[in-house]
Structure formats: C-alpha cells, structure tokens
C-alpha cells in the first residue's frame, strides 16, 4: 500500500474502458504474460510500507491474520514460492541458504535474517505465511479449492476494503462477495461466474491478474471491526474537501494456483490516488468523473461509498469545469 507519487507506476483502473463508456462489473481476469508472473515488487517506498504494514499487524493481530491449524503445509508451500520469487527477481536484496530443511532467508534491504526448519512450524514464532508476509508489501489470502467452491482458510491483510481475515475466515468465495447484486449481460450471477472461472482457469504454472477499484474517504483500510470509527466519517465528505479526503483505491490482484494444496493464493497490491491528484492527468480526471457520475446505486452500496459518491462527483464536476474554463 502507498499513496502514489509516481503516476507512471499507478495502475489506473479504467484504461480498458472506451471513452464515453460506463463501468459495469464483468469477468475481467487476464492471464499474466510469461515475463510478468512475479508478484514481488520493491518500490522506493518499500521500507516505509513494510513499517506501516507491521504496525497494523501489531495493532490488531487477530483481525489481520487468521488461519486454521490444518493449513500449515499449505502455508509452507506459499513461503517457498514467495522466497523463490523474491530471490529470482531481486538477488541483490534477497537471498536464501538451504542446508537440507534448515533454511536461512536474508532480507538485505531491512538487514533481517529469518532462520527456520522448512516444514516445521515449531521452529518459528509466527505462522509461516504471517512470518514471510511481513517481508512483502502486499496482502495475502489463501482460498482453498474444495469441491465446487473456494474457502478462505489463511489470510494476512493490512489494507482491506470491507474485509478482514477475522471476519471472512471460513467463508466461501460466494459468501465473501455476497451480496454482489449483479448479473452478467447474459444473466448469469457474476460472483458465480468469476468463481467458476478462477477454479477452472487459474491452474498451476498459469497465474492470472485483474484490477479492482474502490473509493475511500479519509482511510487507508476499512473493515467491519472498526466500522464505529470510519463509518461516520464517510458522511463528512463535501464537494469542497473531497479532493483531499477521497482517494481512488486500486487493488492489483494476482492469482496463483498452489500445486500441492490446490488452493488459489490471492496477492493484493493496494495503491491510492487522491481525487485532487487526478488533475495531473486531465484524461484520467475526465474519464473518472464520467464513470463515477454513472455508477448504479446498488454498486455504490456494495462498494461502500454511497454516503460520499455525490459530493465526490460534485467535486470532480467543479474541477473539470474549472480546467475547461482555464484552457478556454
């Protein structure tokens, strides 16, 4: 998570929407290209982000990390994959020494070393995914494929949108996304269609991706456990302060099928852009204004931004008009 300072790196979510078209839910998963399958990314903000992530995990440990006891082998499988990815992409920052099952993982950016017996959870203080997850800025959710659904059985999440490992543990994919009140153009319930697509197409060795977006008012993350704090603040947004308070929240999602556990690992990279910064890219400002003015009510309700969508659109409208006035 970080507030984007480099717009060239910001994953603007509406690139694929034609000018003048609106945003509607669809199955928008893409297979990752051969040379872009590694989800480990080190940005200049890495140290700052890790510090913040660890603070959040420490503040609410039970809310932000949850697992079942039967998931240890699954977690070790994820540990191995993440370490291999880190070492493969950034050999100057990460290194692993393997002496049989005795592994030592070096993080040279933070000058930290993790030593453990691979596969033996008693050799570490935290659980395997909770330990390794603290070296990466992304959030991790492990959805285990059982019969015809995916079940949330392990998660470490610091930057959530109406979600928490504590609240969502044990839920099926459908339950987590309920009530997605939307159907595809052919009338199929969307959550079911996306779930089936994930189960059938996210196969070992073939990772996929998609970009999810939302709006957030004066918060980096929202979960049900802290609703009393952030719930009321959503009503404080006005057309005057929306530029500072409201942020476009973009979540790059990566999906990896874990070959041994048959689970799908969701890797979530969350980034923010303040509404006022849209002005730096006038074409983004125009399109975001046009798309947000046409969001159906049920979608705004589901995404949780209905209390402040109107002042936000009003703010963008004023901004668009101001720029048009200046350029004319």
């Amino acid at each position: 998570m970080y507030e984007s300072t480099n717009l060239d790196l910001f994953p603007y979510p509406f690139h694929n929407i034609k000018e003048g078209s609106n945003y509607r839910y669809s199955n928008d998963l893409r297979k990752l290209e051969k040379d872009h399958t590694n989800c480990v990314v080190i940005t200049p903000e890495y140290e700052k982000q890790i510090k913040r992530k660890r603070e959040l995990l420490k503040e609410q440990p039970a809310v932000r990390f949850q697992s079942y006891p039967h998931t240890m082998a699954m977690q070790w499988e994820v540990v191995e994959m993440l370490i291999e990815m880190a070492v493969d992409r950034y050999p100057e920052h990460f290194q692993v020494e393997k002496n049989g099952n005795h592994w030592t993982f070096h993080n040279y950016i933070l000058n930290e070393t993790e030593s453990f017996i691979f596969g033996d959870a008693s050799s570490i203080e935290l659980e395997p995914l909770d330990l390794i997850g603290r070296h990466f800025t992304t959030d991790f959710v492990l959805m285990v494929h059982r019969d015809d659904n995916l079940y949330l059985e392990v998660a470490q999440e610091s930057y959530a949108a109406l979600f928490s490992p504590h609240w969502n543990k044990g839920m099926t994919f459908d339950e987590i996304h309920a009530p997605v009140p939307f159907v595809s153009r052919t009338g199929v319930p969307l959550a079911e269609r996306v779930r089936n697509f994930l189960i059938r197409n996210v196969l070992p060795g073939e990772p996929w991706t998609r970009i999810n977006w939302n709006l957030m008012a004066n918060r980096w993350d929202v979960n049900y456990e802290t609703f009393d704090t952030w719930g009321p603040t959503r009503f404080l947004v006005t057309p005057e302060n929306a530029g500072d308070l409201v942020r476009l929240r973009v979540e790059e999602q990566f999906f990896y099928r874990m070959p041994r556990s048959n689970a799908i690992l969701f890797v979530l990279n969350t980034q923010f852009l303040a509404m006022k910064d849209l002005v730096l890219r006038p074409e983004w400002l125009n399109q975001t204004y046009s798309i947000l003015s046409d969001i159906p009510k049920p979608m705004a309700e589901y995404k949780g931004f209905s209390p402040f969508i109107e002042p936000t659109v009003e703010y963008l409208k004023n901004l668009v008009e101001k720029i048009e006035f200046q350029t004319n």
């Binding site: 494929h145 059982r146 019969d147 196969l203 070959p259």
Partner: peptide, 12 residues
C-alpha cells in the same frame, strides 16, 4: 506443463 487437476478428490 505444471501438474493440473481437473479430477480432484471430493471433500464435503
């Protein structure tokens, strides 16, 4: 290819 499974054991 990597191992793929379209014939997994039932769970529930």
């Amino acid at each position: 290819s990597w191992p793929k499974n379209h014939f997994p054991l039932a769970f529930k």
